[in-house]
Design a protein around this nucleic acid. Sequence first.
DNA 1: ACCCAGGGTGACG
DNA 2: CGTCACCATGGG
Length: 295
Amino acid sequence: MTVEHIDDKTILISADFSLKHTFECGQAFRWLPHEGGYLGAARGRTLFLIEREGQIEMSPCTREDYESVWKDYFGLSRDYGKIREALAFDTHVMAGMEYARGLRILNQEPFETLISFIISANNNVKRIQGIIEKMCIRFGERIPGWQELYTFPKPEALACATVPELEACGAGYRAPYVIGTARVVYDGFDLEALRCMAYAKAKKLLMGLPGVGPKVADCVLLFSLSHGSAFPIDVWVARIMKALYLNEGVKKREMENFARERFGEHAGIAQQWLFHYARGGGLGIGRRGRQSEPS
DNA sequence: ACCCAGGGTGACG
DNA sequence: CGTCACCATGGG
């Protein structure tokens, strides 16, 4: 991987990094298409990324922004070649990897990820994005700059919010969960401490929060707390497990065990490759309902 | 009108 | 422990 310093506000990098797959695989909800690239905000800063001739241009981004924030946020020091080798024995995962080449697991902010995936329960991506955007405008802070972008609300802001206010953002019946979890975090629940904890213990602690079950906990651990062995099981992954690896009547508990034994410390990225590929139409696994099979 | 969406909760056995 | 109706909202 190479890093070039174009000027004091532009960085050009060459890496195994696909913006489309990274931002549209469902791990994050606040990086949106903009002028041929993607625009978003994290850790108190805005950033625009665009692919030019196989390289990624990032701006505004000083050398220090890159080294202290974005390099870590985009997981750019992680060696995906090594992960690929470790999972090469599985043809389905390899097919997903080929499809989603350049998909990188982000290191998002834990509180944002936690609230975002509480919102995601029994919901769809488009609506999740809208709800989160409204919450940021209402409870976040405007980030200085030309673009009108907001930070994700702090725990205090959501802890002090009311149910009607969050319902007005579209949160629906999840509003009390958001407030309840925000209060626990505001009262001192240390999300960052989960990073260094054993996976099982961290997951158990997360599941003690209102609105957080096994799937949401795994998403938070995988997308923001560096737990590469987390394996979120949603409706799609359950379909994949049943169709490709296990039998129809299998339960989630068995799926977890299977995934942990088969994919180990790389279960999370394997899950993303499979999930994203299946949603994109691969693996021969279609959506329910009527929109999948055009007659 | 019905089903689905990156599920979780509470009640009931 | 396991199962299951229900949950607010918008789009197909």
